[in-house]
């Protein structure tokens, strides 16, 4: 099938970007979206033109590398789908597809469709861990974890750190990302010791890094490729409020 592409091109972080138009005549419906872009790049290189820079790695919706904003949606069409799982059968012959990078102040564009998500690493360093050195761990069965809590903690831990939640949010808030980590660790007995500090520190860091506030629109939940729900944001708010009253730091 024939596909028209409208792709954001930007030489580097400082350059001014603009949309560039491309056309592909022989797109196979069985191709993945990323393979379609590969074929575009092969063509551009052979024509002596600049290929489009974009990120991808595992192609199994787990590494969180891919980050394309397709036709106005992070990761494009499909519920609970990462960019690498989008196939061209989701589009029709003659369609025009607009592809942009994540748009958020805290995720500056590096080149074309690549953004810098280092802010997520900084958020994790602010408290997304349990302070335990190798060698100190008690027996894994010493702390019993009920199946329901363990499963719920897993649901939160399934976050792949792609940043679709930030890209979807009109405030560019990272609240769902922080909420998932804070909830995962607060649900487990081994994470409770530092739960208060963690909530306070990660939220403070989120503000410092320029992420916006959460206004409960729920866009993040709709676009999350792992289906992480905003009930975790409610949990974060509770953890944060309790911590603000009791933790004097």
């Amino acid at each position: 099938m024939k596909i028209k592409l409208n792709i954001w091109k930007q030489a580097n972080a400082k350059a001014k970007g603009k949309f560039e138009k491309y056309e592909l005549d022989d797109v196979d419906a069985e191709m993945s979206f990323l393979e379609m872009l590969d074929s575009l790049n092969e063509k551009l290189i052979k024509e002596g033109k600049e290929p489009v820079a974009f990120e991808h790695d595992c192609h199994e919706a787990i590494c969180g590398c891919c980050s394309l904003y397709i036709n106005g949606h992070p990761h494009g069409p499909g519920k609970e789908t990462a960019t690498c799982q989008v196939h061209m059968r989701s589009f029709k012959d003659g369609d025009t597809i607009t592809v942009e990078p994540w748009r958020a102040k805290s995720f500056p564009v590096l080149k074309d469709l690549m953004v810098d998500r280092n802010a997520f690493d900084k958020l994790m360093a602010a408290g997304g861990f349990i302070s335990i050195d190798a060698g100190q761990a008690p027996d894994a069965n010493a702390n019993l974890v009920g199946k329901i809590d363990a499963d719920k903690a897993f649901d939160a831990a399934a976050c792949i750190g792609c940043g679709a939640c930030v890209a979807a949010c009109k405030n560019s808030s990272a609240t769902l990302f922080v909420a998932a980590k804070v909830s995962q660790l607060a649900l487990l007995p081994q994470g409770k010791v530092e739960a208060k500090r963690r909530a306070l520190n990660m939220v403070a860091k989120m503000d410092e890094l320029g992420f916006g506030s959460c206004t409960n629109t729920g866009a993040c939940e709709v676009e999350c490729p792992k289906g992480i729900g905003i009930d975790f944001i409610a949990k974060l708010n509770r953890e944060y409020l309790c911590a603000s009253f009791s933790e004097a730091e």
Binding site: I130, G135, Q136, A140, L144, A150, Q184, L188, Q190
Partner: peptide, 15 residues
């Protein structure tokens, strides 16, 4: 397994 559990890895649990 002890170390990972202590770090917050949510391994599957029985009831």
């Amino acid at each position: 397994i002890d170390q990972l559990t202590a770090q917050g890895v949510p391994f599957a649990r029985e009831y």
